[in-house]
Amino acid sequence: MSDDLKQPDATLRLLILLARLTLTEAQRQAALTLCNSIASWPEVARRAERHLVLPLVYRHLHELAPPTLAPADICHMHQRALILVQRNLLVAGEQQRLVVEILDPLDIPYLFFKGPALAARYYDEPAMRSCRDIDLLVPRHRCVELLEFALQHGYHSLDPEALTPDRQSLTFAIRTQSVVSIASPSGVRIEVHHEIDRGAGIYQTEALLDNRVAYLAGDTLLYSMPTHELFVYICLHHTRHYWSHLHWLVDLDAIQHHPDFDETWAHACAEQRGLVSTYSACMEFYRALAAPEPESSVHLSQRSRDMLEACFTTLQGGFEAELALRFKRPTPEFGFTWQTSVAYRRASRIREWVRRFQPLYLDYQLLPLPPRWQWCYYVARLYRAVAKRRRIRWPAR
């Protein structure tokens, strides 16, 4: 570990150890030992909630029944966990409502990934998985139809704000954003994606939708990625965010313990996507986290050690620490240089340079132009970029 990295305290070590669906006997004993070092159980509950694992932590502690955990503390933890479980059930219900009331009637091909879709398929008790939003992938050419219908039936826009349901406005938003966020009538955030890798070319939306698999959530048929594809994707996504939430560690555990998971297929998928270094480091990282002091593992590669240090940094430093690490990303899609090639990083820099001159939905909001005149937005953004570079004052928008 780096000398300037603060060592995790007993509370964080306990939460990391409990961030899995089931505990081995060795892990149970290690957890009980860590419980003896806990100075404040309300602090454990607070941090478990902040790291999005409180329902699962409560379940484990209720089963372990450590002598140092007072009845009042476990009762408080239970009450907070119930509130979060109710929220998780609400999000899951909104996912099914989205299918029944919009996606199926419009016959739009789709798949869900992460969040309640992952919980429903891989968790023994789906409500244990904290879910704050719904991630939905649909073909780009069906996004306008989906958003128009949703905005006319009780949903409202979050990003871009004040998105109007007219087709010209929606078409422009889809062209300029890979994700449009809306809220359901009950306030659940839904991220509508038409690509899942920021245009990096790792994934093709049509191919993902062609290979989607069906599963039942209650009595509703939903679609998601095949298990091996989803596992590799979450390795990519969660590493991009430096494993800053503990429920992502549970995802690693839950999928690997599902009967559909095949490590050979997952490795082959990682090879196909050019993500073998990411996948292999995540597997090492996961195995190290099975111990109460993962940083002491002598078998960790430098890549997995980098991942572990970043995880500890973000878990202790919060969102500000994650933001600081983001500024060091070699590309927007990858958290570490060893995940990419020199050629890929060069291509990514070119993409990011070009993206700076792409119009934003705000440009359209300020001055809605018909399609034949929308090239003017590119000229305006280029002029503003040149003006900024030359330190010419430009009126605030």
Rank of each mutant, 00 (worst) to 15 (best):
V213W: 03
V213M: 04
A214F: 10
A214M: 11
A214Q: 14
Y215C: 00
L216T: 13
D219N: 13
D219A: 11
D219S: 11
T220D: 00
T220S: 01
L221M: 11
L222D: 14
L222H: 13
Y223M: 02
S224G: 14
S224N: 10
M225A: 10
P226A: 12
P226F: 06
T227H: 02
T227G: 03
E229N: 07
E229A: 12
L230S: 09
L230R: 05
F231G: 06
F231E: 02
Y233T: 03
Y233S: 06
I234Y: 00
I234V: 11
C235K: 05
H237N: 13
H238K: 06
R240N: 15
R240S: 10
R240C: 10
H241K: 09
W243H: 12
S244G: 09
S244W: 09
H245K: 15
H245C: 13
H247G: 00
W248V: 01
V250Q: 00
V250F: 04
V250K: 00
V250S: 00
D251K: 04
L252H: 11
D253I: 09
D253N: 12
A254Y: 02
A254P: 01
Q256P: 03
Q256S: 12
Q256F: 07
Q256W: 08
Q256D: 05
D260Y: 03
F261Y: 15
D262E: 10
W265S: 15
A266T: 05
H267E: 13
H267P: 01
A268L: 10
A268M: 09
E271H: 14
R273A: 11
R273L: 15
R273I: 04
G274P: 08
G274Y: 01
G274K: 01
L275A: 14
L275W: 01
V276W: 02
V276R: 14
S277C: 09
T278A: 14
Y279P: 04
Y279F: 15
S280T: 08
A281P: 00
A281E: 00
M283E: 08
Y286E: 05
Y286V: 07
Y286Q: 08
R287F: 09
R287Q: 15
L289W: 10
A290N: 12
A290V: 11
P292Q: 05
E293V: 08
P294E: 10
P294S: 10
E295D: 12
E295I: 10
S296T: 12
S297W: 04
S297A: 12
V298Y: 06
V298F: 06
H299I: 02
Q302A: 15
Q302K: 13
R303K: 13
S304A: 15
D306E: 12
D306L: 05
L308W: 03
E309D: 15
E309S: 13
C311V: 05
C311T: 09
F312H: 10
T313N: 09
T313Q: 09
L315M: 03
G317Q: 01
G317L: 06
G317R: 02
G318K: 05
G318L: 12
F319P: 02
E320V: 15
E322P: 04
E322T: 12
L323T: 11
F327K: 06
R329D: 01
P330W: 01
